[in-house]
Write a protein that binds this DNA or RNA. Structure first.
Length: 662
RNA sequence: GCGCCCGUAGCUCAGCUGGAUAGAGCAACGGACUUCUAAUCCGUAGGUCAGUGGUUCGAAUCCACUCGGGCGUACCA
């Protein structure tokens, strides 16, 4: 279907562009205050409100904010689409859209396949760097946020008309590969490898990691014990001799106590871990046989990087298999990349990067390593280690160079854990000095996924929760809900087994993604199955259900949606719930703009939840098929159609699917 | 030690970068199904926005300090 492009507008943008020139009479920089024109928080203050009269008046002697607001109101002509403007309170300007205009505007959306969203006027080349798993380790819940948030931002930017490249910067060259190679050479189970190579490689990685960890902990324990003794002594002297009424001392004692408790619990944890391994005869004998396993694994990595034929051969053999395994997860999640240039791709460029930075005097030697020191930062940005190996900092720099020079990037989004924020600050600062000052770099950081204990989500054994098993469980739980709901329908079950399975998948995967996206990405959030798949509340299911209800109306009424749109029938918003719904639909483009600027998909989830809620209210208040007059029925059908389109489209930008019936 | 982030209803979280009486969702209580799907809607109750001070017409939001929590901090990525 191809619809003609109708005359639609971004209302907020339009209002701002009408006000902005008028404001020049009172300020040199109207653009700095124009953002104070925004959607009203409360419908009683109109549809939009402008708050800039107050700050503007503050800079002008003898001018009261209310007076200034009145003067602005006189100068701005919005009579073509707004009711007369009102000045309220200390100087707010309240804006209400004309009913007729809103009718027409909404009607225009019917014929607009982009739902009122105009492509960007100056499209950028944007690289979205997201997901970035390590090939050595199976994907776990920690990869969920980067993947899902990255994908949503990717889709939104693309829809807004930017030239977007989704790049999966896979960890395929790091230390973990040395571990696999070492494991392969010493602990391989041929049979398992034949049957499921990726599984066996993952086991080898875990094994080598575990053994290295064992020895590292072994040396750490005496140190920890010594520290505990030291702290205990210090605490004794403080508590004994000093003046305990002194606030400073009190504070110190408190700190010592909490430190001590922390160290002790750490020690206990270490000891338990060691005992656990020692109880396993197989593991223990392996650990004894390879006391220097960590160094040996590092050497395998070094050999790989140096081009050792055997290791390179192994790497070439493992990599495609690992990538295939990762790909199956992406397929399930419906995530796509335009390119997957892993760390290994940049390997040949790293030496030049270091040489270049040294030549420009940006990098210098320090304690045997090559570092960039940035003003205001204590930690160095290390680009080459003592042993000559490059770091991920080097790779990141090479990647930026490549993205600017080869891909012609204007903007790069790094969808990466907030714990790496210092790394990105250093990276961005270095890049700026390196000469890529025009490049827009943004660390799209996000918090952790927590379990019920408010600690990062782990299995009971303390391992990371595998991503695949997480998806499986979600779909399984969704299935139970789908079945239960279908069985409870007034006229008996409606869905076939196949449909039930399909719906479970859409609901289960949607639930996981939505739960992740609805939170402000900066904050940690608590993973909770029940909330995620709940029938009610702010969940993907709620929106999917609203969508399915609209589909139900069209199915029952045997109405062809395309034909309905082509009728070009009049849309008339009478009931308050119709008006509120239509206004929300008209705001779609505003929301997407804000998502794109701040890379915050939660603005969109929030919008869609409100939209679905407004629809449900409308649905309860306004009969559609049973409307008394034919024009009312048609008008409401148009509104239903638009609602469903926005929900479906909005969810699709979040990577979430919908079903015709549930 | 230094740096970054956080503290909002019983619980989980929003709060659009300084605006009007701080909002949702759960949970609680009360209403609405001979009805286009009740996986719904409507209503009630629930707050010292951790604390103190400051900036101004106006602060959950900005600044300083205090208390409490998380994370990072030279050869892992």
């Amino acid at each position: 279907m191809s619809l003609p492009r109708a005359c639609t507008m971004n209302i907020l943008a339009e209002l701002r562009s009408r006000f902005e020139p008028v404001l020049t009479e009172w300020t040199d920089a109207p653009s700095s205050v124009i953002e104070m024109l925004k959607a009203s928080q409360d419908a009683k203050f109109g549809d939009y409100q402008a708050n800039f009269a107050m700050p503007l008046a503050a800079g002008i002697p003898d001018l009261k904010p209310r007076e200034l607001a009145s003067q602005i109101v006189e100068k701005v002509d919005l009579s073509d689409f707004c009711e007369p403007l009102e000045v309220a309170g200390p100087g707010f300007i309240n804006i209400r859209l004309k009913q007729d205009w809103l009718n027409t505007q909404t009607q225009n959306l019917v014929a607009d396949e982009r739902l009122g969203v105009k492509p960007a006027e100056s499209p950028q080349k944007v690289i979205v760097d997201f997901s970035a798993p390590n090939v050595a380790k199976p994907m776990h819940v920690g990869h969920l946020r980067s993947t899902v948030i990255g994908d949503a931002n990717y889709r939104v930017l693309k829809f807004l008309g930017h030239d977007v490249v989704g790049d999966n910067h896979i960890g395929d060259w790091g230390t973990q590969f040395g571990m696999i190679i070492f494991g392969y050479k010493h602990f391989l189970n041929q049979e398992c490898f034949k049957q499921n190579p990726v599984h066996e490689l993952a086991r080898l990685y875990r094994l080598v990691n575990q053994l290295s960890d064992y020895h590292a902990t072994q040396t750490k324990i005496p140190r920890q014990q010594a520290e505990i003794e030291q702290l205990t002594d210090k605490l004794k002297t403080r508590e004994g001799s000093a003046d305990l009424t002194n606030k400073k001392i009190q504070k110190e004692v408190k700190k010592l106590k909490s430190d001590l408790a922390e160290r002790k619990s750490e020690l206990q944890e270490m000891q338990e871990k060691q005992t656990l391994l020692e109880q396993n005869e197989d593991l223990h004998s392996k650990a004894t046989a390879f006391p220097d396993i960590a160094r040996q694994a590092r050497e395998e990595t070094a050999r790989l990087h140096a081009g050792d034929a055997d290791n390179l051969e192994l790497w070439k053999q493992f990599l495609p298999q690992c990538l295939d395994a990762i790909q199956t997860v992406y397929d399930r999640l419906d995530i796509h990349f335009d390119m997957s240039l892993g760390e290994s791709y940049y390997n040949p460029m790293l030496a030049d990067v270091v040489a270049d930075l040294k030549e420009r005097g940006l990098a210098e030697e320090s304690q045997g390593a090559i570092c960039v020191f940035i003003d205001g930062f204590k930690s160095p940005f290390m680009i080459q280690k003592q042993d000559g190996a490059f770091t991920y900092a080097t790779t990141d720099l090479a990647t930026i160079k490549y993205r600017v020079e080869e891909l012609k990037a204007d903007r790069v989004l790094y969808v990466v854990d907030s714990r790496q924020s210092e790394h990105f600050q250093l990276l961005f600062a270095t890049v700026k000095e390196w000469g890529y000052a025009d490049l827009e770099l943004q660390h799209v950081s996000f918090g952790s996924v927590l379990g019920e204990n408010k600690r990062p989500l782990k299995t009971r054994a303390g391992d990371n929760v595998g991503l695949e098993s997480l998806l499986d469980e979600s779909i399984q739980r969704a299935y139970a809900i789908v079945v239960e709901n279908d069985e409870a329908k007034p006229d008996g079950p409606e869905l076939s087994e196949t449909e039930r399975r399909q719906i479970s998948e859409v609901v289960g995967l949607g639930g996981i993604k939505y739960a992740d996206l609805k939170h402000n990405r900066d904050s940690d959030y608590m993973f909770d199955w029940d909330k995620m798949l709940a029938n009610r509340g702010d969940t993907a299911t709620y929106m999917q259900y609203a969508y399915a209800r609209v589909c139900g109306i069209f199915r029952k009424g045997q109405i062809d949606r395309i034909a309905l749109r082509d009728q070009q029938a009049a849309l008339s918003l009478v009931d308050a719930s119709e008006r509120a719904l239509a206004l929300q639909i008209n705001r779609y483009s505003e929301i997407l703009e804000s998502v794109a600027i701040e890379a915050r998909p939660n603005y969109l989830t929030n919008y869609l939840f409100e939209l679905s809620n407004l629809f449900s209210t409308f649905y309860n208040n306004c009969p559609v098929l049973k409307a008394e007059q034919e024009e009312v029925k048609t008008s409401r059908l148009l509104l239903c159609d638009l609602t469903a389109r926005v929900i479906e489209h909005g969810l699709s930008l979040l990577g979430i699917k919908t079903c015709e019936r549930m």
